[in-house]
Amino acid sequence: MIDSCHDTSAATQAIKKHHSTLIRPKTGWFDIHLAELWNYRDLVFLFVRRDFVSAYKQTILGPLWYLIQPVLTTIVFTVVFGKIAKIPTDGIPPFLFYMAGYIAWAYFAECLTMTANTFVANSGIFGKVYFPRLVVPLATVLTNLMKFSVQFCLFLAFYAYFLLTGASVHPTIWIAVLPILILEMALLGMGFGIVISSLTTRYRDLAFLVAFGVQLWMYATPVVYPLSQIPAKYHIFFIINPMTAVVETFRAAFLGSGGVNATFMAVSWMITLLVLFVGIVLFSRIEKTFMDTV
Protein backbone atom coordinates (compact mmCIF):
# COMPACT_ATOMS: atom_id res chain seq x y z
CA MET A 1 0.00 0.00 0.00
CA ILE A 2 2.97 2.29 0.42
CA ASP A 3 5.07 3.41 -2.45
CA SER A 4 7.94 5.75 -2.28
CA CYS A 5 7.59 7.80 -5.38
CA HIS A 6 10.76 7.80 -7.38
CA ASP A 7 9.71 10.49 -9.73
CA THR A 8 12.64 11.78 -11.68
CA SER A 9 11.17 15.10 -12.69
CA ALA A 10 13.19 18.16 -11.80
CA ALA A 11 10.59 19.47 -9.42
CA THR A 12 10.64 16.32 -7.39
CA GLN A 13 14.40 16.28 -7.32
CA ALA A 14 14.33 19.74 -5.82
CA ILE A 15 12.23 18.59 -2.88
CA LYS A 16 13.82 15.23 -2.59
CA LYS A 17 13.85 15.55 1.15
CA HIS A 18 10.09 15.38 1.06
CA HIS A 19 9.15 11.82 1.04
CA SER A 20 5.87 11.11 -0.49
CA THR A 21 3.56 8.35 0.57
CA LEU A 22 0.84 6.74 -1.45
CA ILE A 23 -1.90 4.90 0.39
CA ARG A 24 -3.91 2.47 -1.66
CA PRO A 25 -6.14 -0.54 -1.09
CA LYS A 26 -4.31 -3.81 -0.87
CA THR A 27 -3.36 -4.88 -4.30
CA GLY A 28 -2.16 -8.27 -5.40
CA TRP A 29 -0.25 -10.76 -3.35
CA PHE A 30 3.23 -9.41 -3.77
CA ASP A 31 2.86 -5.93 -2.40
CA ILE A 32 5.80 -6.36 -0.07
CA HIS A 33 8.12 -3.64 1.12
CA LEU A 34 11.04 -5.16 2.93
CA ALA A 35 13.26 -2.17 2.29
CA GLU A 36 11.12 -0.14 4.65
CA LEU A 37 12.22 -2.43 7.47
CA TRP A 38 15.71 -1.01 7.25
CA ASN A 39 14.44 2.43 8.22
CA TYR A 40 13.00 0.94 11.35
CA ARG A 41 16.10 -0.97 12.45
CA ASP A 42 16.35 1.11 15.62
CA LEU A 43 12.87 0.06 16.56
CA VAL A 44 13.80 -3.62 16.17
CA PHE A 45 16.60 -3.23 18.67
CA LEU A 46 14.51 -1.19 21.07
CA PHE A 47 11.88 -3.91 21.02
CA VAL A 48 14.57 -6.51 21.71
CA ARG A 49 15.79 -4.42 24.61
CA ARG A 50 12.27 -3.98 25.94
CA ASP A 51 11.52 -7.68 25.79
CA PHE A 52 14.81 -8.58 27.36
CA VAL A 53 14.66 -6.02 30.14
CA SER A 54 11.01 -6.49 30.98
CA ALA A 55 10.91 -10.28 30.85
CA TYR A 56 12.53 -10.91 34.20
CA LYS A 57 11.76 -7.70 36.06
CA GLN A 58 10.36 -8.43 39.50
CA THR A 59 11.76 -11.95 39.50
CA ILE A 60 14.35 -12.96 42.05
CA LEU A 61 16.46 -15.11 39.79
CA GLY A 62 16.15 -12.84 36.76
CA PRO A 63 17.98 -14.07 33.66
CA LEU A 64 19.04 -17.16 35.61
CA TRP A 65 15.74 -18.59 34.45
CA TYR A 66 17.32 -18.83 31.01
CA LEU A 67 19.63 -21.43 32.53
CA ILE A 68 17.31 -23.17 34.96
CA GLN A 69 14.82 -24.02 32.23
CA PRO A 70 17.16 -26.06 30.00
CA VAL A 71 18.94 -27.71 32.93
CA LEU A 72 15.71 -28.92 34.52
CA THR A 73 14.29 -30.03 31.20
CA THR A 74 17.47 -31.92 30.39
CA ILE A 75 17.41 -33.65 33.77
CA VAL A 76 13.80 -34.70 33.24
CA PHE A 77 14.57 -35.95 29.74
CA THR A 78 17.60 -37.83 31.01
CA VAL A 79 15.55 -39.55 33.70
CA VAL A 80 12.43 -40.23 31.66
CA PHE A 81 13.80 -41.09 28.25
CA GLY A 82 17.30 -42.20 29.25
CA LYS A 83 16.84 -44.06 32.50
CA ILE A 84 13.22 -45.19 32.39
CA ALA A 85 12.47 -45.61 28.69
CA LYS A 86 16.11 -46.51 28.01
CA ILE A 87 16.19 -44.92 24.57
CA PRO A 88 19.76 -45.29 23.24
CA THR A 89 21.69 -42.09 22.53
CA ASP A 90 24.29 -43.39 20.07
CA GLY A 91 26.77 -43.86 22.90
CA ILE A 92 26.75 -40.19 23.81
CA PRO A 93 26.33 -39.15 27.47
CA PRO A 94 22.53 -38.77 27.70
CA PHE A 95 22.76 -35.45 29.52
CA LEU A 96 24.68 -33.81 26.66
CA PHE A 97 22.57 -35.56 24.06
CA TYR A 98 19.29 -34.22 25.46
CA MET A 99 20.65 -30.82 26.22
CA ALA A 100 21.96 -30.29 22.69
CA GLY A 101 18.64 -31.42 21.24
CA TYR A 102 16.59 -29.39 23.65
CA ILE A 103 18.27 -25.99 23.33
CA ALA A 104 18.19 -26.22 19.53
CA TRP A 105 14.55 -27.20 19.60
CA ALA A 106 13.67 -24.61 22.24
CA TYR A 107 15.01 -21.77 20.14
CA PHE A 108 12.92 -22.79 17.17
CA ALA A 109 9.84 -23.49 19.29
CA GLU A 110 9.99 -20.16 21.12
CA CYS A 111 10.47 -18.23 17.91
CA LEU A 112 7.44 -19.99 16.51
CA THR A 113 5.07 -19.67 19.46
CA MET A 114 6.02 -16.09 20.19
CA THR A 115 5.76 -14.80 16.63
CA ALA A 116 2.52 -16.73 16.18
CA ASN A 117 1.07 -14.23 18.62
CA THR A 118 2.24 -11.12 16.82
CA PHE A 119 -1.01 -9.57 15.66
CA VAL A 120 -3.16 -10.47 18.60
CA ALA A 121 -0.60 -9.55 21.25
CA ASN A 122 0.28 -6.23 19.63
CA SER A 123 -3.12 -5.13 18.40
CA GLY A 124 -2.98 -2.26 20.89
CA ILE A 125 0.08 -0.72 19.27
CA PHE A 126 -0.78 -1.79 15.73
CA GLY A 127 -4.15 -0.11 16.01
CA LYS A 128 -2.62 3.25 16.74
CA VAL A 129 0.64 3.63 14.90
CA TYR A 130 2.03 2.47 11.62
CA PHE A 131 5.41 0.85 11.33
CA PRO A 132 6.32 -2.19 9.27
CA ARG A 133 4.69 -4.99 11.22
CA LEU A 134 7.54 -7.38 10.46
CA VAL A 135 9.56 -5.40 12.98
CA VAL A 136 7.85 -7.31 15.76
CA PRO A 137 8.58 -10.89 14.62
CA LEU A 138 12.13 -9.85 13.82
CA ALA A 139 12.56 -8.47 17.30
CA THR A 140 11.11 -11.65 18.77
CA VAL A 141 13.58 -13.80 16.86
CA LEU A 142 16.47 -11.62 18.02
CA THR A 143 15.32 -11.61 21.64
CA ASN A 144 15.17 -15.37 21.56
CA LEU A 145 18.57 -15.45 19.94
CA MET A 146 19.99 -13.77 23.03
CA LYS A 147 18.30 -16.34 25.17
CA PHE A 148 19.65 -19.08 22.96
CA SER A 149 23.16 -17.65 23.21
CA VAL A 150 23.03 -17.80 26.98
CA GLN A 151 21.78 -21.37 26.90
CA PHE A 152 24.36 -22.27 24.30
CA CYS A 153 27.13 -21.01 26.57
CA LEU A 154 25.73 -23.19 29.32
CA PHE A 155 25.81 -26.11 26.93
CA LEU A 156 29.43 -25.30 26.05
CA ALA A 157 30.30 -25.33 29.74
CA PHE A 158 28.83 -28.78 30.24
CA TYR A 159 30.39 -29.85 26.95
CA ALA A 160 33.84 -28.74 28.08
CA TYR A 161 33.36 -30.62 31.34
CA PHE A 162 32.42 -33.83 29.53
CA LEU A 163 35.31 -33.42 27.08
CA LEU A 164 37.80 -32.98 29.92
CA THR A 165 36.47 -35.96 31.82
CA GLY A 166 37.00 -38.05 28.70
CA ALA A 167 33.48 -38.82 27.66
CA SER A 168 32.97 -40.29 24.21
CA VAL A 169 32.20 -37.01 22.46
CA HIS A 170 34.26 -35.12 19.95
CA PRO A 171 33.64 -32.03 17.88
CA THR A 172 33.47 -32.43 14.11
CA ILE A 173 33.93 -30.23 11.09
CA TRP A 174 30.17 -29.60 11.15
CA ILE A 175 30.77 -26.94 13.78
CA ALA A 176 31.58 -24.66 10.88
CA VAL A 177 27.95 -24.67 9.77
CA LEU A 178 26.68 -23.60 13.20
CA PRO A 179 25.80 -20.04 12.09
CA ILE A 180 23.83 -21.48 9.19
CA LEU A 181 21.98 -23.78 11.57
CA ILE A 182 21.09 -20.95 13.89
CA LEU A 183 19.95 -18.86 10.96
CA GLU A 184 17.78 -21.71 9.76
CA MET A 185 16.18 -22.22 13.17
CA ALA A 186 15.40 -18.51 13.34
CA LEU A 187 14.01 -18.27 9.84
CA LEU A 188 11.99 -21.43 10.22
CA GLY A 189 10.53 -20.43 13.57
CA MET A 190 9.71 -16.98 12.27
CA GLY A 191 8.35 -18.35 8.99
CA PHE A 192 5.89 -20.70 10.65
CA GLY A 193 5.16 -18.09 13.28
CA ILE A 194 4.15 -15.37 10.84
CA VAL A 195 2.07 -17.82 8.78
CA ILE A 196 0.17 -18.74 11.92
CA SER A 197 -0.07 -15.16 13.17
CA SER A 198 -1.50 -14.10 9.81
CA LEU A 199 -4.12 -16.81 9.96
CA THR A 200 -5.00 -16.29 13.62
CA THR A 201 -6.26 -12.78 12.93
CA ARG A 202 -9.31 -14.46 11.45
CA TYR A 203 -9.33 -17.90 13.01
CA ARG A 204 -8.27 -17.80 16.62
CA ASP A 205 -8.53 -21.58 16.80
CA LEU A 206 -5.01 -21.80 15.47
CA ALA A 207 -3.68 -20.15 18.58
CA PHE A 208 -4.82 -23.15 20.60
CA LEU A 209 -3.34 -25.53 18.10
CA VAL A 210 0.08 -23.88 18.25
CA ALA A 211 0.76 -24.53 21.93
CA PHE A 212 0.37 -28.28 21.88
CA GLY A 213 1.13 -28.64 18.17
CA VAL A 214 4.68 -27.52 18.87
CA GLN A 215 4.97 -30.05 21.70
CA LEU A 216 3.78 -32.86 19.49
CA TRP A 217 6.12 -31.70 16.78
CA MET A 218 9.04 -32.05 19.17
CA TYR A 219 8.31 -35.73 19.49
CA ALA A 220 8.19 -36.03 15.71
CA THR A 221 11.69 -34.57 15.61
CA PRO A 222 14.77 -36.46 16.82
CA VAL A 223 15.12 -34.46 20.04
CA VAL A 224 14.67 -37.17 22.66
CA TYR A 225 15.90 -39.96 20.39
CA PRO A 226 18.54 -40.17 17.67
CA LEU A 227 17.54 -40.45 14.02
CA SER A 228 19.58 -43.65 13.86
CA GLN A 229 16.85 -45.36 15.90
CA ILE A 230 14.35 -44.80 13.11
CA PRO A 231 14.05 -47.47 10.44
CA ALA A 232 15.05 -46.14 7.04
CA LYS A 233 11.58 -46.72 5.58
CA TYR A 234 10.19 -43.97 7.83
CA HIS A 235 12.92 -41.51 6.97
CA ILE A 236 10.66 -39.80 4.46
CA PHE A 237 8.67 -38.34 7.37
CA PHE A 238 11.86 -36.98 8.85
CA ILE A 239 13.09 -35.53 5.59
CA ILE A 240 9.99 -33.37 5.23
CA ASN A 241 10.37 -32.20 8.81
CA PRO A 242 12.89 -29.38 8.39
CA MET A 243 13.85 -29.45 12.06
CA THR A 244 15.25 -32.99 11.77
CA ALA A 245 18.24 -31.80 9.80
CA VAL A 246 18.80 -28.87 12.14
CA VAL A 247 18.73 -30.85 15.38
CA GLU A 248 20.72 -33.78 14.01
CA THR A 249 23.39 -31.59 12.47
CA PHE A 250 23.65 -29.52 15.62
CA ARG A 251 24.31 -32.66 17.64
CA ALA A 252 26.65 -34.12 15.07
CA ALA A 253 28.71 -30.94 15.11
CA PHE A 254 29.48 -31.09 18.82
CA LEU A 255 28.97 -34.68 19.83
CA GLY A 256 30.25 -36.45 16.74
CA SER A 257 27.39 -38.86 16.31
CA GLY A 258 24.38 -39.04 14.06
CA GLY A 259 24.22 -36.38 11.43
CA VAL A 260 22.25 -36.30 8.27
CA ASN A 261 23.01 -36.46 4.61
CA ALA A 262 22.87 -33.78 1.96
CA THR A 263 19.30 -34.64 0.96
CA PHE A 264 18.07 -33.87 4.46
CA MET A 265 19.91 -30.57 4.48
CA ALA A 266 18.76 -29.50 1.04
CA VAL A 267 15.11 -30.37 1.61
CA SER A 268 15.22 -28.73 5.00
CA TRP A 269 16.49 -25.44 3.56
CA MET A 270 14.04 -25.57 0.69
CA ILE A 271 11.14 -25.96 3.10
CA THR A 272 12.52 -23.21 5.32
CA LEU A 273 12.73 -20.73 2.48
CA LEU A 274 9.34 -21.75 1.15
CA VAL A 275 7.68 -21.30 4.55
CA LEU A 276 9.41 -17.99 5.06
CA PHE A 277 8.32 -16.79 1.64
CA VAL A 278 4.71 -17.84 2.18
CA GLY A 279 4.87 -16.26 5.63
CA ILE A 280 6.10 -12.90 4.36
CA VAL A 281 3.53 -12.83 1.57
CA LEU A 282 0.67 -13.68 3.91
CA PHE A 283 1.92 -11.32 6.58
CA SER A 284 2.29 -8.39 4.19
CA ARG A 285 -1.23 -8.98 2.97
CA ILE A 286 -2.77 -9.29 6.40
CA GLU A 287 -0.93 -6.39 8.02
CA LYS A 288 -2.90 -3.86 5.99
CA THR A 289 -6.34 -4.84 7.11
CA PHE A 290 -5.95 -7.01 10.17
CA MET A 291 -7.10 -4.15 12.38
CA ASP A 292 -10.56 -4.60 10.89
CA THR A 293 -10.82 -8.21 11.94
CA VAL A 294 -8.77 -8.63 15.05
Binding site: I23, R24, S54, F126, K128, V129, Y130
Partner: peptide
Amino acid sequence: RVTAPTRGEVRLNGRIASLLEVGTGFHPEL
Protein backbone atom coordinates in the same frame (compact mmCIF):
# COMPACT_ATOMS: atom_id res chain seq x y z
CA ARG B 1 -1.73 3.63 7.54
CA VAL B 2 -3.06 1.62 10.43
CA THR B 3 -5.59 0.11 8.09
CA ALA B 4 -5.87 0.12 4.31
CA PRO B 5 -8.73 1.73 2.41
CA THR B 6 -11.12 -0.42 0.41
CA ARG B 7 -10.99 1.88 -2.59
CA GLY B 8 -9.45 5.11 -3.68
CA GLU B 9 -6.10 6.54 -2.84
CA VAL B 10 -4.34 9.02 -0.65
CA ARG B 11 -1.17 10.88 -1.42
CA LEU B 12 0.79 12.35 1.45
CA ASN B 13 3.61 14.71 0.63
CA GLY B 14 5.90 14.96 3.59
CA ARG B 15 6.85 13.05 6.66
CA ILE B 16 3.76 12.01 8.53
CA ALA B 17 3.20 11.28 12.20
CA SER B 18 -0.02 10.24 13.80
CA LEU B 19 -1.05 10.77 17.34
CA LEU B 20 -4.07 8.55 17.68
CA GLU B 21 -3.15 8.00 21.29
CA VAL B 22 -0.39 9.17 23.58
CA GLY B 23 2.02 6.68 25.02
CA THR B 24 1.52 3.96 22.45
CA GLY B 25 3.81 1.10 23.34
CA PHE B 26 4.82 2.44 26.72
CA HIS B 27 5.96 -0.46 28.80
CA PRO B 28 5.20 -0.17 32.52
CA GLU B 29 8.35 -1.99 33.60
CA LEU B 30 10.70 0.26 31.66
